[in-house]
Simulated assay, not measured.
Amino acid sequence: MKTNIGLTKQSTEAVAEQLAKLLADETVLYIKTRNAHWNVTGDNFHANHIFFEEQYKQLDELIDSVAERLRKIGHFAPATMKIYLELTHLTEYSERTNDGLGFMKDLLKDHESIIDFLRGNVTPFAEKYKDYGSSDFITSLIETHEEMAWMIRSYFRN
């Protein structure tokens, strides 16, 4: 059945295109955080192992919410690694050490990249496409990523 939520087809297609990129970014970040959880080494292994687990669990919820937002506006969510790697703004892998801080530097950069991407879409979603629901939705994701980034940043001394 056709989605009739007061948005034009062109608007939902444009918003869905950006949400698909976001879904790819969230999924790649999730996998990278899982990698950190599985492969972290060093003196603070146990604390880092638990920290990364908390982070990937949050990301798992975000992934589901982005996919559901796509469905709410009448589009299907991409769901293959091939498509995610084509859509993502993130790099799948970067050179780093396997200690906690090595992983954290990489993950922090990704959270900040997602925050920047989200900020760039808040106004267009609302003003250009009149999709205030998606605009509000991604605003809440900014807050979540800001908190996750803050938690990571707090591991570093100024």
Results as ranks from 00 to 15, higher is better:
I142C: 02
S11G: 00
H49S: 10
Y132G: 14
A24D: 08
L118R: 03
F103W: 01
Q55C: 01
S134N: 13
E146M: 11
S94Y: 06
D106H: 07
F156H: 12
R157M: 13
H89N: 14
H145L: 03
H46V: 08
A16K: 02
G133Q: 13
L23H: 01
E146P: 05
E127Q: 09
T3I: 10
I83W: 09
G100M: 10
F103D: 00
E13W: 12
R119T: 10
T12N: 14
T88R: 02
T144Q: 05
L85K: 08
L29N: 12
H49K: 02
D116R: 12
L108E: 02
V28Q: 05
Y155G: 05
M81G: 09
L87Q: 06
I5L: 05
D110S: 07
L19N: 10
L101Y: 11
F137H: 15
R34I: 14
G42V: 08
L22T: 00
S94H: 04
T88F: 08
E112Q: 01
T8H: 14
L22Q: 02
A67D: 10
E13C: 00
S11F: 03
H49N: 15
K21H: 01
T123G: 11
S65M: 14
I63Q: 15
H111Y: 06
T144M: 12
G133I: 05
E61A: 15
K105H: 13
E143R: 03
